[in-house]
């Protein structure tokens, strides 16, 4: 206890000599022992050491985890799930369009292809239908007329 009190007393006495009575100029002492002066001026660098070893390291850890949170958990995990869902949906849409609907369209296309000759006749034009009916009638009548002649000849 005596030691600590005397060290404190010495410090007080020195401070009085330096700044009250101005017996020694503190600048001179500082210039003479710059290292010691720096050590005392920066309070033994306790704050700096603490900042460098603990405070800034914790902040770094925070930054790393923050980046991890934004890019891995949220980016890869959550947004990744969202991307996967959209990708799956795009894939399903493609499948639906080209395979499921494609099969259906293929059947339709085939029907269309095979119905082509029939469609040549089915023009929908009344005059051509009338023309065909007329031609048919003439053929029928001609056949009938001929047939009747043969029949009549047989009777005779």
């Amino acid at each position: 206890m005596l030691a600590s009190i005397s060290i404190a007393g010495l410090g007080i006495w020195l401070a009085i000599q330096f700044y009250r009575t101005k017996r020694f100029a503190p600048e001179l002492v500082a210039r003479k022992w710059p290292k010691a002066y720096g050590l005392l001026f920066h309070k033994y660098y306790v704050d700096e050491i603490y900042d460098a070893t603990v405070v800034n390291r914790v902040k770094d850890l925070g930054s790393v985890l923050g980046t991890f949170d934004a890019n891995v958990i949220d980016g890869l995990g959550v947004d990744g799930t969202g991307w996967l869902a959209r990708f799956g949906s795009t894939l399903s849409m493609w499948w639906d369009k080209w395979v499921i609907d494609g099969l259906l369209n293929f059947g339709a296309k085939m029907t269309q292809l095979f119905s082509f000759p029939v469609r040549m006749l089915q023009t929908g034009m009344f005059s051509s239908y009338a023309m065909l009916i007329l031609v048919g009638l003439v053929i029928l009548l001609a056949y009938y007329g001929h047939h009747m002649q043969v029949l009549l000849r047989g009777v005779r």
Partner: peptide, 10 residues
């Protein structure tokens, strides 16, 4: 712990 650390960089 993680939540608190991530707070530091916001």
């Amino acid at each position: 712990v993680y939540g608190a650390l991530v707070c530091l960089m916001q």
